[in-house]
Simulated scan of single mutants.
Amino acid sequence: MLAAYAARIDADQPLAALEVGDLEVASTPGGALVPGDWVEVEVRAAALNHHDLFSLQGVGLPARACPMVLGCDAAGVTADGDEVLVHAVINDPSFTGPDSTADPRRSLLSERYPGTLAERVRVPRTNLIAKPAELSFAEAACLPTAWLTAYRMLFTQSGLRPGNTVLTQGAGGGVATALVLLARHAGLRVWVTSRSAERGERAVRLGAHAWFPSGERLPERVDAVMESVGAATWSHSINSLKPGGAVVICGTTSGAEPAKAELTKIFFKPLRVIGSTMGTQDELTDLVSMLVSTGLRPVIDSTYPLADARDAFARLESGAAFGKVVLAAE
């Protein structure tokens, strides 16, 4: 089948490790064998994430697992004709509990098992939720990673209430655009930072109340910061919080080792530092319901056919995308 896959690992030039072509999953030497009772989904749309670039660099994907089909997000159709979204968190069979992200042995599709950037993907039946007719396949494919991450950060982890002020570090990525739209709809005052005036202004047109240059002192402190950048913005995030405020961190795209840990400020203010990763299937179901009832829709930067996945990856790697980059069959 046609797939976009990591043929090898290249820490310095991730796109050099990307191949687009025929790959039979059954012949893949790496990863884990797909259980026979998993359900096959014909992929109609799949969204790219920075996770895919990290995989090509060997983050979470060892060389021995290559070739590995990339991709976490998908929406498609089962053999029974059901239109579905794929929840990408794969739990260990022994795990029990309501929060799938608490499983220390969990993985995402494309880490141990083939991912979604292919004509077909196989997943546990329990990882499927119904795609409502109100959402296109491309829109639905944007939800399981970036939008679910933003939803959990805001509504499960942060403790924010309507009227509070939230700062999102960075403007324009999939998680950032989701945070702006969800937070504005929830009645929060929404601020963003950006190194680009054009992207900051686009975030304001999307729904942010204001944007500020990255690292600039804010006019007042905020109740919470949504952090996905990491080292480059960590000190600014800590210094931007009110006493008792929270920084919710879901990623470290600029690196995981900040110049200063800011520990004194964290315990003296005191501040809360909350880790957040992906979300549960129940949260994904609630997110889908929220979009149906409110009319909110993901921002899609661009759409490519699967055969042009290399161009889609180049768009993602360039940092120029505003919203999600999608591979779609429709």
Rank of each mutant, 00 (worst) to 15 (best):
V204R: 15
G170R: 00
H236L: 06
G187F: 01
H209N: 14
A171P: 00
A171R: 00
L182R: 04
W211S: 04
R205W: 00
A232Q: 13
R217M: 14
G200L: 06
E220I: 04
V175R: 05
G172N: 07
A231C: 04
S214F: 06
R189V: 09
V190H: 03
V204Q: 13
T233Q: 07
H185P: 04
G200F: 06
V229W: 06
E220H: 11
S228Q: 09
R221D: 14
A197T: 12
E201V: 03
A176H: 10
V190W: 01
L182H: 02
G187A: 03
P213Y: 00
H236R: 04
E220D: 14
A224V: 08
S214Q: 15
R189K: 14
S196D: 13
T168R: 04
V175H: 05
V192D: 05
V190P: 05
S228G: 15
S228M: 13
E201P: 02
W211L: 00
P219Y: 10
R199Q: 12
A231S: 07
L179D: 05
P213W: 00
V180S: 04
R189S: 12
G207I: 00
V225L: 02
E198M: 08
A197V: 11
G174T: 08
A203Y: 03
T233S: 12
R202F: 01
T177P: 01
S194V: 10
G170V: 01
A183M: 06
G187Q: 01
S194C: 11
R184N: 14
S235Y: 12
S194Y: 11
A178C: 02
T168I: 13
L206Q: 11
L181W: 04
W234M: 07
S194F: 11
